[in-house]
Design a protein around this nucleic acid. Structure first.
Lengths: 202, 202
DNA sequence: TAATTATCCGAACGACCGTTCGTTAATTTA
DNA sequence: TAAATTAACGAACGGTCGTTCGGATAATTA
């Protein structure tokens, strides 16, 4: 059972369009990709695309919404399961990295962020990102409290969580499967580095 | 004595143009920023801009070249100085983070990468980045060998270096001075996290 | 089968794009 | 001061942009 609900039921060819559009936009950038380019890669006519979204900006919004909703659902599942804080952190990293590597193009768009949008759309995305960030900070905080026996200030936890996300989100700039291993190997390396430092061999 | 030489001597109003252009491009993206926008923020006429560069793409190139040349010069200085591997790593991080925070807009453009360019231009940038990456991997490698007494494979060192750069380069997404402290504080946090793990209190 | 709805299209719209041109001030050089 | 170079400009260019419109076809429903 996946999320299945974006905002309404139009999903026939939308997913295919979002995938192919994300691939092109990840290379050329949002403004660098024209509606005519998108018509080309999706095998549709220029005007035909407007059946699936009302304007180009909504396409960008939908790509972001779909991705963050998936990430959020995975993180939420994690909080419901019974496991140690360390195991939960490891799983958070593994989920994020695996999703990242499986959806490099979308993630590149999602992490490029800062694109201006319709107020309503950017509000929705901001809330999704905020919620995901809050869950992550909670998981990181639980781990650090358990591990060290002390409480950390909010801004410290916030900074640490950003450092972790930096390691994970920078993947799009360098990752290649044959050179850097599987998602599992990368995830383990990030977990080990974040929790024990770069020289830890476990 | 800084670098001072980019590729030739035209520097009169160029630096000002590069600064202001980078600020706008960091918000709107390269393709999202028009030459007319740039004429506006630089207080010049549209056609007058072409006195400083031959086309829009060269502007992007110059912003990148200037930034990477500065970063590279700092890293090169570091290798010439006599210090422990740990201290050198700490200084590499401090230099990078300080430069990042002082030039958030340029760094945002530089790290957004992947923009297609003229072959010659992209070759020059690729080599600059490569050289900087090599220096960083060397510094990280020296630290890890000294600290652990063992040698690490190249792909391991490469991955670790990318994780470090992830922590540093993700700054543009979250950093605010009043909430996350000075460049020094952020640098120390990154150094400590990378070398000892997130719970290290020094 | 008839009516309705979803899907798709070619052609065109005005706006904006990066770039070029011819020219003129301002500054530097001889 | 005269000549030469640098810095700046308005106007216009062909082209591409996102979007719209009226109509066609395919799929679903009654």
């Amino acid at each position: 059972m996946t999320s299945q609900a974006t905002i309404d039921k139009r999903l026939t060819g939308l997913d295919e369009i979002l995938d192919k559009s994300a691939q092109l936009m990840a290379r050329l950038g949002y403004h660098g990709t024209s509606m005519r380019d998108l018509a080309g890669v999706t095998g549709r006519s220029l005007s035909g695309l407007y059946h699936y979204f009302s304007d180009k900006e909504e396409l960008l919004f939908l790509i972001n919404q779909r991705g963050f909703t998936s990430l959020l659902a995975m993180a939420n599942d994690l909080l419901g399961q019974n496991m140690t804080p360390a195991a939960r952190l490891a799983r958070l990293i593994e989920n994020h990295v695996s999703y990242f590597i499986d959806h490099l193009s979308e993630m590149r768009i999602m992490t490029s962020g800062g694109m201006e949008m319709n107020d309503e759309r950017s509000r929705i995305l901001r809330e999704l990102k905020q919620e995901y960030t809050n869950l992550a900070r909670k998981i990181v905080g639980d781990y650090m409290r358990t591990e060290s026996g002390t409480d950390y200030a909010d801004n410290i936890l916030s900074r640490k969580t950003f450092l972790l996300y930096g390691m994970m989100n920078w993947i799009f700039g360098w990752y290649s499967a044959e050179e850097h291993g599987t998602a599992q190997q990368v995830s383990e390396d990030i977990f080990r580095t974040f929790t024990k430092g770069c020289c830890a061999t476990e």
